[in-house]
Design a protein around this nucleic acid. Structure first.
Length: 704
DNA sequence: GTAGGGTTAG
């Protein structure tokens, strides 16, 4: 009778929108005063506290109960522990319960199964499953739903934990476990929308997309259930992954028609789906329409911008997120750091790194990999290595980041030995890892090693070489001067992978470096056949002609280029001084300090010539007299940027310049002299790698 | 009373 009244009041509290915590406490006080601490109604209040996720109140009330507390009290407490992620406490409570001989009721199992799932502890989970079978609870709706989720999640975990380690075991395990998901589902006497949603989400999380969508149709046909917000937010990532904006839009339409468009889960999925389909404007629109934005909504739009190359915009959203007092998550940082990497914004990257350390996110492997890449791309390979060395569990992405970093900085031997260390560590290389190690080989002329890696890809790791790998090997052979070999290699690339214009361009660049006009002509014919609009090909070929003093052929090509309406991308270099980026074009006199820059370059040139620098006028690709050639070289954009750096920073500071195209040979020689004369390290990043000039030599060993 | 969804690094 009194319990009936208490239950009634509890239902009212749960329905009521006012301060539920306060009402629950008032009810508790009322019961204690009128009926005493030991009255059974206190257990109902405990379940209310647990329902409201009030851990401290639940625990306090639980401890005031006469021993042993009844099953309902235990299940309420355990639920509260699990939803607070205090998973070990969930299990220790379960053990206490059993040691007090309290028979476990069915309500205690869903929380325990969930706890074992979150703990990623399959053994524990299997034994819980076995217990429910023994007790005859395994077809209970809530328990079966928890089991479907558990089996689906464990399939996921075995994917990540075994990837690269237990190659042979994994597929069978996977099959067995995805089978278990289905077995539990099929055996259920009654299924509700949660059962269907759990199954569908499980399929999506395991990449079984076709089955997931089949089940969405099935749930309507056989289950007589309509997809709800859980269903929709679970299936949207499928269209993101398949870059299927048409079907993604259909789902978007469905969510609007059914009043789900304010749902923050669906909203984030939509933001992500549109971004992954390269529809950033739609993505921004979905984001702006969200009535309430949580941390994940922000993460989605930040990642969306950065993945679409809108780096400043991504950074802007990150700032706005902080400004609106939404606490950044590890994902927020791993999404925004790549923007710094692409913008070469070292100072900003360092600030974010500081922030990451203060918050305590520096152990996160996603963040660490993004930092390794950021430092490497921003020219600080030492810091990249420092961060990498402190990663506890290095996965394939982390290894790839550092290997690529070493490759870009010309530390080819480090890159190669890191790659071998990765194999020793039992981490299986992937497609991108091979790109990194092959790039390293090509930048250092490690032809034999390069071949070895290329040949082992398919043979030892079952990874079919892609365009990038062929390009790297072609580049490797070309740079090493093995031009004919490279030509045959590209010609015989095979049916699976067709050579593209850019692969041939690699060889064309090699022809230029090794001054082979005849082969260059053969190559450019092939290239323009595939890619007639390739402006780079025209420029390179005309430069090759110019270098061979075949001015007329060069001019002919330039005319053809102009007729096609193709314009050469102008060379430019930039340098960050203070917090400002200064950009210079070749022969650019527009900088406010141009006179001082020119003066500095003249003084430097005098000293350089005293030390033995000889102008390499062959690098001038125009038919002009020697004096003009001298001026042209003197005003190459990287020299202007470096000279500006020298006059506007304090002695000893490292100068870092970025150039959008390759450094010319003459400038490369000149910068070696400059670095020595001014006693500074000069770092130049061109479009493919870093050059560290110090004491009269360059880290690339003149091989680039 | 107990169960299900969205975002990240090379």
């Amino acid at each position: 009778m009194s319990s009936y009244t208490t239950q009634h009041m509890i239902s009212n509290i749960l329905r009521n929108n006012s301060n539920k915590t306060l009402s629950a406490k008032q009810l508790h006080a009322h019961i204690v005063i009128t009926k005493g601490t030991f009255h059974n109604d206190n257990i109902l209040v405990l379940s209310l506290y647990s329902n409201l996720n009030l851990l401290h109140h639940s625990l306090h009330l639980f401890n005031s109960l006469p021993s042993p507390p009844p099953p309902l009290a235990w299940s309420s407490l355990i639920k509260c522990y699990t939803s607070h992620s205090l998973l070990h406490l969930s299990f220790s409570s379960f053990n206490s319960m059993r040691s007090l001989s309290v028979p476990p009721n069915r309500h205690v199992f869903p929380s325990l199964i969930k706890a074992s799932t979150l703990l990623k502890h399959p053994k524990l989970a299997y034994s819980l499953h076995a217990s429910t079978v023994r007790l005859g609870f395994d077809s209970d709706l809530y328990i079966a739903n928890a089991l479907i989720n558990m089996y689906a999640k464990f399939h996921n975990f075995s994917v990540t934990e075994n990837a690269g380690k237990v190659f042979d075991v994994f597929p069978q395990r996977g099959k067995y476990e995805i089978g278990s998901v289905r077995k539990v589902f099929d055996m259920m006497p009654v299924r509700d929308v949660v059962s269907w949603n759990t199954l569908i989400a499980g399929y999506v999380q395991n990449g079984v997309d076709v089955e997931a969508l089949d089940m969405v149709r099935e749930m309507g046909k056989n289950g007589n259930l309509k997809p709800d917000s859980f269903t929709l937010s679970s299936i949207l990532p499928i269209f993101a992954e398949h870059v299927d904006v048409y079907r993604g839009k259909e789902i978007h339409g469905y969510t609007v028609r059914n009043g789900f468009d304010g749902d923050v889960f669906i909203g984030s999925s939509l933001v992500d789906m549109y971004a992954k389909c390269n529809r950033l404007e739609n993505s921004l629109c979905a984001f702006n329409h969200l009535p309430r934005k949580d941390a994940i909504s922000w993460n989605s739009i930040i990642a969306g911008c950065v993945q679409n190359g809108e780096f400043d915009r991504g950074l802007g959203f990150f700032r706005r997120m902080l400004k609106e007092n939404v606490r950044p998550m590890p994902v927020s940082f791993s999404s925004v750091i790549p923007a710094c990497a692409h913008l070469t914004a070292l100072n900003l990257g360092k600030q974010l790194h500081g922030c990451i350390i203060r918050i305590g996110f520096d152990g996160n492997e996603f963040i660490a990999s993004s930092l390794v890449d950021m430092y490497a791309k921003c020219g600080n390979i030492k810091m990249a290595r420092y961060v990498f060395d402190r990663i506890e569990k290095r996965d394939m992405v982390a290894w790839t980041a550092i290997i690529m970093g070493c490759a870009m900085h010309g530390h080819a031997l480090d890159a190669v030995s890191l790659f071998d260390n990765m194999l020793e560590d039992g981490v299986r290389p992937c497609y991108v890892a091979f790109m990194a190690v092959l790039t390293a080989c090509s930048h250092a002329g490690l032809v034999d090693e390069g071949w070895r890696y290329f040949n082992s890809m398919e043979r030892d790791f079952g990874i079919a070489p892609g365009l990038e790998h062929y390009a790297a090997v072609a580049d490797l052979l070309g740079r090493a001067g093995r031009l004919e070999e490279a030509y045959d290699f590209i010609s015989n690339m095979g049916v699976q992978v067709q050579p593209t214009g850019s692969v041939w361009s690699t060889l064309l660049a090699a022809c230029r470096a090794h001054k082979s006009v005849e082969l260059a002509e053969k190559v450019v014919d092939k290239l323009l056949l595939i890619d007639p609009e390739n402006m780079g090909a025209y420029v390179l070929m005309s430069n090759i002609y110019s270098a061979a003093r075949r001015w007329k052929d060069a001019a002919k090509l330039r005319i053809r280029m102009r007729k096609k309406g193709l314009k050469k991308i102008p060379a430019c270099s930039w340098i960050e001084v203070g917090n400002e980026v200064h950009t210079f074009m070749a022969g650019d006199k527009s900088h406010p300090y141009y006179d001082k820059i020119n003066e500095a370059l003249t003084v430097l040139l005098e000293q350089m010539e005293k030390e033995g620098y000889v102008l390499d006028t062959n690098q001038v690709l125009h038919d002009v007299d020697e004096e003009q050639k001298r001026d042209l070289l003197h005003n190459h954009s990287e020299r202007l940027a470096i000279a500006f750096g020298i006059i506007s920073t304090t002695a000893g500071t490292t100068i870092q310049v970025i150039k959008n195209i390759r450094v010319c040979t003459d400038c490369h020689t000149a910068i070696k002299f400059i670095a020595k004369i001014v006693g500074r390290e000069i770092v130049v990043r061109d479009n493919s790698r870093f050059h560290h000039f110090k004491n009269g030599s360059c880290s690339c060993g003149d091989y680039w």
